[in-house]
Design a binder for these strands. Structure first.
Lengths: 227, 227
DNA sequence: AGAAAAACAAGAGCACTGCTCACTTTTCTC
DNA sequence: GAGAAAAGTGAGCAGTGCTCTTGTTTTTCT
């Protein structure tokens, strides 16, 4: 039963989110102003509280959407390559994440940046967050199945192995400890590189951060993932 | 001429910074309130403007201090190891950064997290920011001099090589392109790992993030740095 | 179809924010 | 000690998130 009212409500909510995102991009998440949104829509500021109990709830909604967006971007990049082109998939995933992050720095910061203190991600955020993880783990499983050796065969501590087991079970991919370790290391590297660039740490370091990025993901593919 | 007045001023400034840091830790950088600081000190809010022209200037000051603090921590960790214990130095540097970041998450976020929008780091911040870079580059130079081979000998693109040259010149360490690439990759990895943990991305992933961290820096030492 | 219920919107108001400005008080310097 | 410089005051501006009362509109139930 999607009454006329329910539809109007949905439109209102999406309009709020649209304006909120524009505002965050322009002024930062900390300067997100409900009153400004209300002004733009042409409605009393108090009216917005019929849609979001609090400003943080709006932010949460945006964060969840963003997780989903990242998942979509990364999935699409992965899907664009042939499944057996392991290296190509890793590069595509990496580059798509970087491109998206540079195009939406504030959104990236919403997810991977400084969290708002006292703010705890509600359970809803966990689902969408697993989307890009699934892409990564699927690639790792394919790497293992293709017989690619991890670049490091030192034993994995039992405590850590147990935690890996939890991940395996949760995502349903049977990945060896060694491939898990290498894959997570690659992921840490990717997030670190993108974070540093998006958050401006390369501003006085690299004239062309893209060169650094591309060299780095290439390096990781070879030296970390062994593909 | 450090008159009584100058000293009082210095004390006032350090008191402001102390309270600001406490407030950022409790409420986040975005909720830093000059008025609240003034209240705590017991002075009119307008009085603070005798010390900082603007709220962002206070933030800048804190950021610069934090860069310096990170530099100190990392330098100390490095200095605690024998210079020829390359692997030990890398592990010590990595662990010290993580420990410090976990103990001062809001400070870490100030430097490596979402930047305050519209805020551009003034030239003053560049100096202290080079401190930890120096530690890293010195280690890389020592690694190269010890004859450790980088784990990847694919050619480094000319464009990137030119940017490496700028870094070499600026910091005065003569490091090969290959070692540079590996070292930066290791650094990306470290920052990524610490960021993800400090910003809470491991909350529903690793029961004991320390296990993951230690395995990861070990892995990087072997597979990336080749030490 | 008419009444009751639910949702929506408005606008005043509270307590807060960064920041300015005219003003007074304190301290340093000559 | 007089003049200058620095420090502190408090009112005020324009903005914020959020609440609460009031009134309107729409949906739902009988």
């Amino acid at each position: 039963m999607t009454g006329a009212r329910a539809q109007q409500r949905a439109e209102m909510i999406s309009e709020i989110k649209r304006l909120a995102r524009a505002q965050i991009a322009a002024e930062g998440a900390s300067n997100l102003s409900l009153r400004a949104i209300a002004r733009d829509i042409g409605v009393a500021s108090s009216a917005l509280y019929r849609y979001y109990d609090t400003r943080d709830q709006l932010l949460t909604d945006l964060i969840v959407e963003t997780y989903d967006e990242i998942g979509k971007v990364v999935e699409a990049a992965d899907a664009r390559m042939r499944r057996d082109d392991l290296r190509g998939r890793w590069l595509a995933i990496s580059r798509s994440l970087r491109s998206w992050a540079l195009a939406h720095p504030s959104d990236f910061g919403l997810v991977f940046g400084t969290p708002v203190p006292g703010y705890v991600a509600p359970a809803d955020t966990i689902g969408p967050a697993t989307r890009y993880t699934t892409v990564l783990l699927r690639l790792l499983a394919d790497i293992e199945n293709a017989g690619c050796d991890p670049t490091n065969d030192s034993p994995v501590a039992k405590n850590l192995s147990r935690q890996y087991a939890g991940l395996r079970k949760r995502f349903g991919y049977d990945i060896s400890d060694h491939h898990m370790r290498a894959g997570l290391s690659a992921w840490m590297n990717l997030i670190g590189t993108v974070s540093l660039e998006v958050f401006g740490q390369f501003d006085n370091v690299f004239a062309h951060p893209a060169d650094h990025f591309n060299a780095n993901v290439d390096f990781v593919a070879t030296s970390v993932l062994g593909i």
